[in-house]
């Protein structure tokens, strides 16, 4: 075997190894989704979505948990989006090379790696007790906002970095101020990337259980939240609660609720992809 043959063989081997690695994720996801679909798809109907929790598996529904999740998602977006994007813009455009920025950068990366339950403990002490918000939707949303802020900030910065220097230079050359450049050039150009980051961060928030349990989210609430100060439950807590019940009917319920939760995250990821494509085309 000469050198050329050897290299070709290596090339082929690596290619198959690559295919194998790519397939692991895909196959696992397929098995997982298939398994859940088999267990739960028959259980999903309109009643399942509009019913309150019950001790009888066949009468229970996810209404309050679903409403709680929607509330949490909406409030978390309202809080985390402006704060995270503004912080990202500041770090990328204003505080580029000073010491403070370096320190902030390290801290933000570290925060992204803090286990979520720690955020729960922080939320319990600061929002629930000191700020006296109680175990409310608002306290839960603030906690989750803290949790996803690092992700939002990092993805905002990445998106802004991807905007070519030539565009900024052109804007400045035409006499635009820094703010005008950011508002009229950089943000529109990086909007798709920023939105993608925010939506992916929110998809993570919608699946969080531990921090919300610590903050005091409930397992049984017979009403949907009417205001940010109301108590709430969320889908992952409802799922966890059902999984830990001995009766087989609850396992089916849990599978059905998982399908709906997966559906929500898929739709959110879909929206992220859509925005990314739309923005990219417009900009080109």
């Amino acid at each position: 075997m000469n050198n050329i043959q050897k290299n070709r063989w290596k090339d082929q081997a690596f290619k198959f190894w690559g295919i194998f690695c790519t397939m692991i994720g895909l196959v696992l996801l397929t098995i997982f989704i298939g398994d859940i679909l088999i267990d739960g798809i028959r259980r999903i109907d309109w009643d399942f979505i509009t019913d309150l929790p019950s001790r009888k598996a066949e009468n229970s529904g996810i209404y309050t948990a679903l409403m709680g999740s929607i509330w949490i998602l909406a409030l978390t977006t309202i809080i985390a989006f402006p704060v995270g994007v503004a912080a990202g813009i500041y770090l990328e455009e204003y505080a580029k090379n000073n010491k403070l920025a370096g320190l902030l950068e390290i801290n933000i990366s570290n925060l992204a790696g803090v286990p979520s339950i720690i955020y729960g403990l922080l939320g319990l002490e600061v929002f629930v007790r000191i700020m006296n918000l109680g175990a409310s939707v608002l306290a839960g949303s603030l906690t989750l906002s803290l949790l996803i802020l690092p992700i939002v900030i990092v993805s905002t910065r990445e998106a802004i970095k991807a905007v070519p220097q030539s565009i900024k230079d052109a804007s400045f050359a035409l006499g635009a101020s820094k703010w005008q450049t950011i508002w009229h050039q950089i943000l529109p150009a990086s909007g798709g990337g920023i939105l993608t980051g925010v939506i992916l961060a929110l998809s993570r928030a919608v699946g969080e259980t531990a921090p919300l349990i610590v903050v005091g989210a409930l397992a049984y609430v017979p009403f949907a939240p009417q205001s940010p100060m109301d108590e709430f439950s969320v889908m992952p807590i409802q799922i966890f609660n059902w999984i830990s019940r001995p009766q087989a009917g609850f396992i089916e319920n849990a599978a059905a609720a998982i399908i709906i939760l997966l559906g929500i995250t898929f739709i959110m990821n879909g929206i992220a992809v859509y925005f990314r494509n739309k923005w990219q085309k417009k900009w080109k």
């Binding site: 175990a135 005091g216 989210a217 409930l218 049984y220 017979p222 009403f223 019940r245």
Partner: peptide, 23 residues
């Protein structure tokens, strides 16, 4: 599960009392 079941039945008797249960 016991408290949940009781709260569920209580809703039929006193629909305006809001019972919430945490774990």
């Amino acid at each position: 599960p016991v408290s949940e079941a009781v709260a569920e039945e209580f809703r039929n008797v006193q629909p305006d009392v809001k019972v919430t249960i945490g774990v």
